[in-house]
Computed example of a mutant assay.
Amino acid sequence: MRVSTVEIEKAAAILKLLGDKTRLTMVKILDSNDCCVCEFVEIFKTSQPAISQHIRKLKDVGIVRETRRGQWIIYSLNKDNDYYPLVQNLLQHLPNQDFKLDELEEQGLRITCE
């Protein structure tokens, strides 16, 4: 599917999901870094179930995918998704969020699940 044939309904659903500040920030972070739930818990100072719910919604529309590394699940942006060009276009207008991961690293909390 080419970007020009993106279904309006699906695009609207994706944009609605990304209308949430936490999910939008997660996707921006995942644009340049793979992360586990525990890192998002620390970044957003929220519960693991809440973070998992955000991830599940992003996975359901195919924006995010998961990879198993040992017993841990690592999340990344699904760049093979038909709607990735739409997401990428939006993300290029947002400020880099890597400093959030840098702060975690300084605190010794980067990938706390390994």
Results as ranks from 00 to 15, higher is better:
residue 67 T to Y: 08
residue 55 I to N: 02
residue 69 R to H: 12
residue 2 R to W: 03
residue 104 L to C: 06
residue 107 Q to T: 00
residue 7 E to K: 09
residue 38 C to D: 14
residue 86 L to M: 13
residue 52 S to H: 03
residue 49 P to G: 10
residue 107 Q to E: 15
residue 92 Q to F: 10
residue 64 V to Y: 05
residue 52 S to L: 13
residue 11 A to K: 09
residue 78 N to F: 07
residue 19 G to E: 04
residue 29 I to A: 08
residue 78 N to M: 04
residue 73 I to A: 10
residue 62 G to V: 04
residue 80 D to K: 13
residue 40 F to M: 15
residue 108 G to T: 10
residue 76 S to W: 03
residue 96 N to Q: 14
residue 81 N to Y: 06
residue 8 I to K: 14
residue 98 D to H: 15
residue 91 L to W: 02
residue 104 L to M: 07
residue 73 I to D: 07
residue 99 F to A: 13
residue 21 K to A: 15
residue 39 E to H: 05
residue 56 R to I: 02
residue 27 V to K: 03
residue 75 Y to W: 09
residue 51 I to K: 04
residue 70 G to A: 06
residue 32 S to E: 14
residue 114 E to P: 03
residue 105 E to K: 15
residue 8 I to R: 13
residue 65 R to F: 13
residue 48 Q to V: 14
residue 49 P to C: 08
residue 4 S to H: 04
residue 94 L to N: 04
residue 4 S to G: 04
residue 62 G to R: 07
residue 46 T to Q: 05
residue 93 H to G: 12
residue 3 V to L: 10
residue 18 L to Y: 09
residue 15 L to G: 09
residue 11 A to Y: 05
residue 48 Q to W: 10
residue 88 Q to W: 04
residue 36 C to H: 09
residue 28 K to S: 10
residue 40 F to G: 03
residue 104 L to W: 06
residue 60 D to M: 04
residue 64 V to P: 01
residue 13 A to W: 04
residue 108 G to D: 06
residue 114 E to L: 09
residue 7 E to F: 05
residue 89 N to Q: 14
residue 28 K to T: 09
residue 21 K to N: 12
residue 71 Q to D: 11
residue 96 N to K: 14
residue 11 A to T: 10
residue 107 Q to S: 10
residue 86 L to Q: 03
residue 12 A to G: 05
residue 47 S to H: 06
residue 77 L to D: 03
residue 78 N to T: 04
residue 46 T to P: 02
residue 84 Y to W: 15
residue 48 Q to P: 06
residue 1 M to P: 07
residue 66 E to S: 15
residue 98 D to R: 15
residue 55 I to K: 05
residue 103 E to Q: 11
residue 82 D to A: 13
residue 84 Y to R: 02
residue 24 L to I: 03
residue 65 R to N: 07
residue 58 L to K: 00
residue 109 L to F: 11
residue 87 V to A: 02
residue 7 E to S: 12
residue 33 N to S: 15
residue 54 H to F: 04
residue 72 W to Y: 07
residue 39 E to D: 15
residue 106 E to L: 13
residue 10 K to S: 07
residue 26 M to A: 08
residue 22 T to D: 07
residue 82 D to K: 10
residue 63 I to E: 00
residue 92 Q to I: 12
residue 7 E to H: 11
residue 95 P to S: 13
residue 90 L to N: 00
residue 72 W to T: 11
residue 35 C to M: 15
residue 37 V to D: 14
residue 7 E to V: 08
residue 97 Q to I: 01
residue 21 K to W: 05
residue 114 E to I: 15
residue 101 L to W: 00
residue 51 I to N: 06
residue 110 R to Y: 13
residue 87 V to W: 00
residue 23 R to P: 01
residue 103 E to I: 13
residue 74 I to W: 12
residue 86 L to H: 03
residue 97 Q to L: 01
residue 42 E to V: 02
residue 17 L to D: 05
residue 42 E to Q: 15
residue 21 K to E: 15
residue 55 I to E: 01
residue 114 E to R: 12
residue 31 D to A: 13
residue 21 K to L: 08
residue 70 G to L: 10
